[in-house]
Design a protein around this nucleic acid. Structure first.
Ligand SMILES: [Mn+2]
Ligand SMILES: [Mn+2]
Ligand SMILES: [Mn+2]
Ligand SMILES: [Mn+2]
Lengths: 231, 231
DNA sequence: TCTCATAATTAGTATAGACTAACTAGTTCT
DNA sequence: AGAACTAGTTAGTCTATACTAATTATGAGA
């Protein structure tokens, strides 16, 4: 007898949807998502994760290698990308049409993503003109489940002298996001790397075209994902 | 020893919020909401209602008279009206800003009402200009928890010869709503009652000012809530 | 190769919310 | 008043999801 699989098409619960999203993020670089990392990201105990991992692998959404970690199956990946699409369209809609600032959209989207219908999401996407990026510069997966993969460098690692476009801001922390906005550091901005202090010191940049300088500490510079601009 | 009250301020769950809303609707004419009516409206078994009733009275949201029914406490009424405000603002926002028709908003609002923040609701209310009525003509409670109480007559009961304003459409059924819209029977429309056939027969009306006649069967005429227009 | 720290899992418990089956209170009819 | 119907409640079970405490596997150092 086979090891009792579950109903292959249960409606996903809110918890399940959130687990799939964090597993996606933790394993997107190809590796396994570790139990303790999932637990930390969801603010839940490791045994709770072990329990959920059991259920998710029984429903075929993830692959579990005991003591090593988990990965999404293609079914799980599809479900995760659907949630990420919802989340990012919601974030953009709230900023563009309801006056939210980019520091506060995340919490709202985190709840709404589980309650909206596909129909509503597609209406929002239409109202936004089928957008490609959310307010933080993260790519929005298509309804078919494709997502843009770009090679980006953290500003903290960019070579001095290069010219960059700021593409993504890798945090949801409201205070940091507010600070970035004040400094004019939002996706799409062009800049050149002027210098970097040794021993994990700050990076100094010049905004293009204004030339205005900014000094960015290492912690923050690791959150600014940039693309090198071809000469 | 007292009969063990629960935490007076638990965050309300989705289920609890839906129970409070239906209890509000069932007891709004002053009476008690019966277990079996609550069960029917939530599509849940009567024992499930008994179980929930126990929890809700322990948290002080309702008053339970065994074998008679339940009523909301003032705390429960406040919570119910908050949900009704959310629901109706969502319905109106979806129709006004996202192209929904009035037959399909209900299902969407039924889920979203539990996920939106107060902040988002107030932003939608602002975008709508602090509206007073939802797409079906139902009054929207204020943020403070006040709701307009109007004396309305069902078209089925209106005296022949009277002039009426159609105020509310008392159904969420998509097919019926679509039909009403086709017939031009939407809140705000003026009409006069031309005649009524005996033995629960249809009511014939004339739209004002066009004079166009409509014959409305009893079942539908009971859903059209009207206000008599002073001569 | 053995030991130990760390990470992961299992065992056992709790709560919310649903269900069915069985029992009982209230009401209505004869 | 008693019988009988109806509505409501209790008893017992189930699933999802969380928790703490206890146990075990894995990989790094000695
Ligand atoms: Mn979420
Ligand atoms: Mn984002
Ligand atoms: Mn609801
Ligand atoms: Mn409505």
């Amino acid at each position: 007898m086979q090891p009792a699989l579950r109903d292959p098409n249960p409606p996903l619960t809110r918890s399940v949807e959130d687990y799939l999203k964090v597993i996606y993020h933790l394993s997107s670089q190809g590796g396994f998502a570790a139990t303790s990392d999932i637990a930390a990201m969801l603010d839940v105990s490791p045994p709770s994760v072990s329990g959920m991992v059991k259920r998710l692998s029984e429903t075929g959404l993830i692959e579990h290698v005991p003591y090593r970690g988990v990965q999404l199956t293609s079914q799980g990946r599809r479900a995760a990308l659907r949630m990420i699409r919802r989340h990012r369209i919601l974030e953009l809609y709230l900023t563009q049409h309801l006056g939210y600032d980019w520091g506060s959209v995340h919490a709202e989207a985190e709840r709404l993503e589980h309650a909206v219908s596909d129909d509503l999401i597609e209406r929002m996407a239409s109202a936004l003109g089928q957008p490609q990026y959310d307010p933080h510069g993260d790519p929005i997966p298509t309804a078919a489940g494709d997502i843009e993969e770009t090679e980006l460098v953290a500003l903290a690692d960019a070579r001095v002298g290069t010219k960059l476009e700021l593409r993504q801001v890798g945090t949801q922390d409201a205070a940091r996001l507010r600070y970035f906005a004040e400094q004019g550091l939002t996706p799409g901005v062009l800049l050149t790397v002027s210098e970097r202090q040794p021993f994990n010191g700050p990076t100094t940049i010049a905004l293009v075209p204004s030339g205005e300088p900014r000094v960015v500490g290492r912690e923050l510079a690791q959150l600014l994902w940039c693309q090198e601009i071809g000469a």
